[in-house]
Design a binder for these strands. Sequence first.
DNA 1: TTGTATGCGTTATCAT
DNA 2: ATGATAACGCATACAA
Lengths: 357, 357
Amino acid sequence: MPAVRLVDVAARAGVSLATASRVINGSRRRVPAEAIAARVRIAAEELGYVANAQAQALARSSTGLIGIVVHDIADPYFSSIVGGAQRQARENRSQVLLAGTNRDAEAELTAVAAFASYRADAIILAGSRQRRVDPRLVAALTRYADNGGRVVTFGRRPIVAGARVIEIRNRDGARQLVEALIMRGLRDFVVLGGPSGLVTAADRVSGFRSGLKAAGIAPLQVLHGGFNRQGGYDSALDAWSRLGDRKGTGVCLLAVNDVMAQGAITALRSLGLHVPDDAAVAGFDDIPTLQDYDPPLTTFRLPLQHIGEQAVSLALSPEDGGWIAIEGTVVLRQSTATASSESARTDHRSQIAVGTS
Amino acid sequence: MPAVRLVDVAARAGVSLATASRVINGSRRRVPAEAIAARVRIAAEELGYVANAQAQALARSSTGLIGIVVHDIADPYFSSIVGGAQRQARENRSQVLLAGTNRDAEAELTAVAAFASYRADAIILAGSRQRRVDPRLVAALTRYADNGGRVVTFGRRPIVAGARVIEIRNRDGARQLVEALIMRGLRDFVVLGGPSGLVTAADRVSGFRSGLKAAGIAPLQVLHGGFNRQGGYDSALDAWSRLGDRKGTGVCLLAVNDVMAQGAITALRSLGLHVPDDAAVAGFDDIPTLQDYDPPLTTFRLPLQHIGEQAVSLALSPEDGGWIAIEGTVVLRQSTATASSESARTDHRSQIAVGTS
DNA sequence: TTGTATGCGTTATCAT
DNA sequence: ATGATAACGCATACAA
């Protein structure tokens, strides 16, 4: 229980604390003579010395901690991103502090405060927020940034001055996706839009709208609900009940993310409907679990793990105000296969990627 | 950048550092006079004071950090557990340090060392390990525990003296599952056993074997491979090719976890086979994503989020050597529907839960 | 190159 | 009840 300290190591090696510190921690190229260094290392090994990161953090001014706040870690979208972030953090010998908020602004604020308290080197806000950002959040982040903390947010613009941003091209992606579907012959669209205030959801809806408008098409409906599978399920049920005589005319449900699309498909199935025969469905994100999902879901692929890695790189980068745009790819699969499109119901694995750039 | 310190707050409030500390941090019921306390609080608020958790950790001897190491955070099994853990940690005003290892023993060791270095109050090893535990891991954990750190491992017995353990009844669960399937009329089983060295996988295989043996049945095959969807996919392909004339006789594939089962079903589908008509498939865990998975997958339900919560509770509990057993439930769904079993292919949502206790 | 001494921000022990 | 002050474990500017 008397955790061995660096002084103990120094004593055993017969050197000063400073020397021991330099050996164990070649912060600069101030490496002592190899003979001495070896003695210190041996002493440390024999004593089972484990540096106290807290004390180091206090003495230096960097903790090696990266805070990541997500809405729901159990959501494949976030868990993939966090996976990438964790990977990149390891590359940089940093540790990941994780917080989930369940989309609660209060919890998000608490998480940021906690990370600031731990003097995390950077805070990454991976979850999208409402259009109106909580002023308290801005205040907390501003203070954090003023004290040297790096802030990375997902969105279109920095939430506080100097913040870095990961911009996922949601609007463009949604537009590309709907254009590809129109090209496939789809004409009647229902948008499962998620929460109306959530920026990510709103941007995707906006992209869908823009693509439709360009083709002179008006969406049959634009519904709002939860950003999770339940939201997709409920919205789909709602949509179908309101569809009236448009049912069966090749309606396509456009969900603003994959889990919503999956919930929607489950809802349709509960109605005895088949996808894509009775209705087409498309999602967004291309979460890894789609790999084993049937019907193969048409979606807009985002490099989730890569996004996490980039977020951490951005967070660790010395210069302020960095900005990384994330592009995606339209992935057409069976869930939006039309009668005219080749191979409906035959090859389950068929998959056509339409490049973006 | 000149982060405001407690001294600054004290100065502005016109009190001593000690008093300010007592106010901001009612560690004991040594609360100063309310009049003074209010002044301090106001000063802190005005200055935007944020306590330095690192310094606090150094002065107290607790960091409020809980380290969790998993194999792959993107795996729904782990992300659900981590979600529960994170939730419980928040309840206890603790922060979660997350590390992923990709099943690499070296990475696991590094993660434990890092957590120990940060003086995490507890380290939770949520991922199963090989039967032969790396002695270096044991050494690191022992030292950590000796220094007052709490260790929680998932498995059947503590990996180091005094460690707490979360015991998931894998063997019992697997046995119950296979018994239920036998009762449903299934007779020909192929076990998709995952990595032969992994304790969790081995225990489940053992449970399957035990259940089969009790019914006088010998498994057609027991295959080994990865513990992920790819492992399930590959094993299923392998199994089918070796099945010879037993194909089509109502074979049931028993996977040691859900993602493997999903991979297996995808593999069968690529062969033009239908589940459960051409083959039955069962998984293990009941990951949340199964909610929208088709065919509805028979599995053994584990309270994943609850497990995460319990792990943290155990980690935070003062007494050493705690032990929590996790029970589960057999959940029979369409993926193992037999011709004789009612409602095959009709009600997709039918689901029968067979209690365990 | 190596050692000495100071600071990092708090908590806690002691007086007062 | 409140205020000095000594840890807490380490890094580093400065001195040797």
